[in-house]
């Protein structure tokens, strides 16, 4: 196996995690990863050899993700809205281990895509501000404000869902 391809293969688990945090369903996330890998193969020359392919791959995937989000918002879909409580409960259970993870997942989906991507790159994927800003193609200051707003939004959404949970317990 070509060394460069082997290095790309070893990044697949992290690309899948990033995609899963960006998108709602597992198949859709894996489709995004597949699109990313296919595009990466056609642009192997853009990857500076000797460097980890991670940042390069994440950059490719981010562009694909943003394209997809633009199409969704042009079509006026409601993909960004938080799910109703009953629908959240109907989400496939095997995909997210427990109720707490499901709440996190739902809350994350409700955050605007730009903020979601910034927060996920730094908080989950552990990129530095400089690396994340580079992947997203924005200045560091923009990245920082997306993270700050994203965290604040996440906090509010998690508070909402724990309030809803409390109401459900009281009602039942």
């Amino acid at each position: 196996m070509d060394d460069r391809k082997a290095a790309i293969v070893s990044e697949i688990p992290r690309l899948r995690r990033y995609a899963r945090a960006l998108l709602r369903d597992r198949d859709g996330a894996d489709d995004l990863v597949q699109d990313c890998l296919e595009r990466a193969l056609t642009r192997l020359d853009n990857w500076q050899s000797g460097e980890s392919p991670r940042r390069w791959l994440f950059t490719i995937m981010h562009h694909l993700f943003i394209d997809r989000m633009r199409k969704v918002s042009r079509r006026g879909e409601t993909a960004m809205l938080p799910l109703d409580a009953d629908e959240a409960l109907a989400a496939p259970a095997e995909q997210f281990g427990n109720a707490a993870s499901r709440e996190i997942f739902d809350a994350l989906q409700a955050i605007g895509p730009d903020r979601r991507a910034a927060l996920v790159l730094v908080s989950i994927e552990g990129f530095s501000y400089a690396e994340a800003a580079n992947i997203l193609g924005v200045p560091a200051g923009t990245l920082m404000s997306r993270i700050a707003r994203g965290r604040e939004e996440l906090r509010g959404l998690l508070d909402d869902s724990s309030r809803r949970r409390a109401i459900r317990i009281v009602e039942s």
Partner: peptide, 24 residues
């Protein structure tokens, strides 16, 4: 909470279609 919610993804087996896509 965010990290732990997605930690399991790294341990999942990689779907064959993705490995094939990476190898062309």
């Amino acid at each position: 909470a965010l990290r732990s919610a997605f930690a399991g993804v790294l341990d999942e087996p990689v779907p064959a279609r993705l490995t094939r896509a990476a190898l062309g």
